[in-house]
């Protein structure tokens, strides 16, 4: 049994096929990087894997449970850090964490301690009683990551988790994730546009373009296949040079623009 398995998974939005007949398996305890240009269908796939969207056709199982049939059981098995904002801005950092802990049935006597530990980890403990709407973009992102780790999920979905974070924070967070992966055997499914990040952490990589998986394998296998020196070059060799204007414009979300503006200025 795999941690995640999809068979011929497809999602159509009207005439647009966002995810086109993709099949892959993710082994227990592995780190799986799902890479692809803007609008390739990564987030849509994650939404189907996490019961937020129902597939047009095809099958998904998480730890053997069918996403469409056993959605409640499936939801017990994973945690997720979304690409788009998902905090309640009118609550404090602590209240956002506490709400999550209750929804995920973290034992009452552990809630406070775990929240303290994770908020310390993302250096937000001092700001715990501030409303989230007073936070910077990076602080919100750190809070979302801390929240996603709160209930020790068996499978963790990270949709561009480190977007908008400085290099120090990125390293800090990745070393924690790798530790979780090693010590607790957490399976990690991650999308990112930082190729070095994927190269460093992933056991398996799948590259998706226009809704289709165009290559799968380890980083070394992908480089070998494309006769390139780096994962970035391999990625470009597989997905081409053109910028995805149309899809990018449609698929991009607020945070992209904000963080792009931040990086640009």
């Amino acid at each position: 049994m795999y941690a995640i398995e999809t068979k011929e998974l497809t999602k159509k939005f009207g005439s647009l096929t966002a995810v086109d007949n993709i099949s892959f398996q993710v082994k227990h305890g592995s780190i799986f990087a799902f890479l692809g240009p803007n609008g390739a269908g990564k987030s849509t796939t994650i939404k189907m894997l996490t019961t937020l969207l129902s597939p047009t056709s095809g099958m998904v199982t998480l730890n053997g449970f069918d996403v469409s049939k056993d959605s409640n059981e499936v939801r017990r098995n994973f945690g997720i850090v979304f690409q788009d904002p998902s905090l309640d801005d009118d609550l404090t950092a602590y209240e956002n964490m506490e709400l999550h802990a209750v929804l995920y049935k973290v034992p009452q006597n552990e809630i406070k301690e775990r929240i303290e530990q994770l908020l310390n980890f993302v250096e937000l403990w001092d700001r715990r009683d501030n409303l989230v709407k007073t936070f910077s973009g990076g602080m919100k992102r750190r809070l979302e990551i801390a929240r996603g780790l709160l209930h020790h999920p068996k499978i963790l979905f990270l949709d561009e988790p480190t977007i908008g974070l400085d290099p120090q924070t990125r390293n800090h967070i990745w070393s924690y994730l790798i530790k979780m992966n090693k010590e607790e055997g957490t399976t990690i499914f991650v999308t990112t546009h930082y190729m070095e990040e994927a190269d460093k952490v992933a056991d398996q990589i799948a590259i998706i373009d226009h809704g289709k998986i165009v290559a799968q394998g380890t980083s070394a296998e992908l480089k070998e296949k494309t006769k390139t020196q780096s994962l970035e070059e391999a990625f470009i060799a597989l997905t081409g040079h053109e910028i995805r204007h149309e899809e990018a414009a449609k698929g991009l979300h607020m945070r992209h623009w904000r963080s792009a503006a931040r990086r640009g200025s």
């Binding site: 996490t50 019961t51 994973f78 979304f82 998902s86 905090l87 309640d88 929804l103």
Partner: peptide, 16 residues
């Protein structure tokens, strides 16, 4: 909550 994204957080939680 749909537009600002918080709804997703509750919809993926393992509760009915």
């Amino acid at each position: 909550d749909k537009q600002f994204g918080f709804l997703k957080e509750t919809l993926v939680a393992p509760v009915s």
